[in-house]
Design a protein around this nucleic acid. Structure first.
Length: 284
DNA sequence: AATGCATGCGCAG
DNA sequence: TGCGCCTGCATTA
């Protein structure tokens, strides 16, 4: 369930368990597709981790990077092994990559990318990604420069990793709702003030996402407790305004949340709270 | 048992 | 714009 917050959290979690231990890491690929690289890496120490948008990088030795992209359903599960305890359970045959040491193991399944790359190849990935709200070096002006000269809808631009890195379908829908922005507005009509507010909000929301390892976007006054409404009974965890709430009443105005296909993804929005301040024909 | 769906993305045309 | 790819899970029959 990966948007940027998941990946940054994984970078932290891999580092906590495997780097700075002074011991090598056992690297295997039970599923087989990463076996050759695993053989080259095993016994080496994990020296650094990095994340940019939805891309995760694990460094071994000085410059051997494992580049991981989870795609739509890739997943990492961690397990702890107490010293003197039973060893880590054998991985199932869908595990693309297992890291293991004396205290922990981590299993990666279903990624679209898991590859051994060089510093230069890693740099090439950074170069094709836009600013990531979760990276300290991120420059929101770079993103707005692209947005302001595009006729593409803001909903599509927010999902374009060359424009902003790390925003996925949930943060896209939720941040547009929180700022009352119609998802169909063209990028060129998004004002600098609006973009500033959206970016600042993404930084805060996604940082909280890393902290809690889930996406929560409702303001304190709209939580289930504050409103006396039942909490979300959905599988994915956090409290949200519109994501996957099609036909349900908007938490703020009661209007039925709408959904539509946009670039092969489900878009959700409140037609009342997110008013189109521009032309009305872009809205289907 | 089979089907459908998902917080993604790259590619062909 | 549509298709394929990676996997697990809930839902349907």
């Amino acid at each position: 369930m990966p948007e940027g917050h998941t990946i940054h959290r994984l970078a932290q979690d891999y580092a906590t368990r495997f780097s700075g231990t002074g011991t090598g890491t056992r690297v295997t690929s039970p599923q087989g597709k990463f076996s050759d690289a695993a053989a080259l890496l095993t016994g080496a120490e994990l020296t650094h981790t990095d994340a940019h948008g939805k891309h995760l990088f694990l460094r071994f030795r000085d410059s051997d990077w494992v580049h991981i992209h989870l795609g739509l359903f890739g997943k990492v599960t961690f397990g702890e092994v107490a010293p003197g305890d039973a060893p880590a359970p054998p991985p199932t045959d869908t595990v693309r990559l297992r890291l293991a040491n004396d205290t922990a193991y981590a299993d990666l399944r279903g990624p679209t990318t898991c590859a051994l790359i060089t510093d230069a190849e890693k740099q090439a990935v950074h170069d094709r990604l836009g600013p990531d709200p979760l990276r300290p070096d991120a420059d929101p002006a770079t993103a707005h420069a692209r947005i302001r000269r595009s006729r593409t809808t803001i909903a599509a631009l927010l999902m374009d990793q060359k424009v902003v890195a790390g925003v996925g379908n949930v943060y896209r829908a939720e941040v547009l709702f929180r700022h009352g922005i119609d998802p169909y507005r063209p990028g060129k009509d998004i004002t600098p003030a609006e973009w500033d507010a959206v970016w600042t909000d993404l930084v805060a929301l996604m940082r909280e996402g890393v902290r809690n390892n889930r996406i929560d976007t409702v303001r304190p006054e709209h939580t289930p407790e504050a409103m006396g409404r039942p909490p979300r009974v959905d599988d994915h965890g956090g409290e949200v305004y519109v994501y996957r709430r099609a036909t349900l009443p908007c938490h703020i105005c009661g209007t039925g949340i709408r959904t539509a296909d946009l670039a092969a993804r489900n878009l959700f929005w409140c037609p009342t709270c997110q008013t189109n301040r521009n032309n009305d024909e872009t809205n289907q």
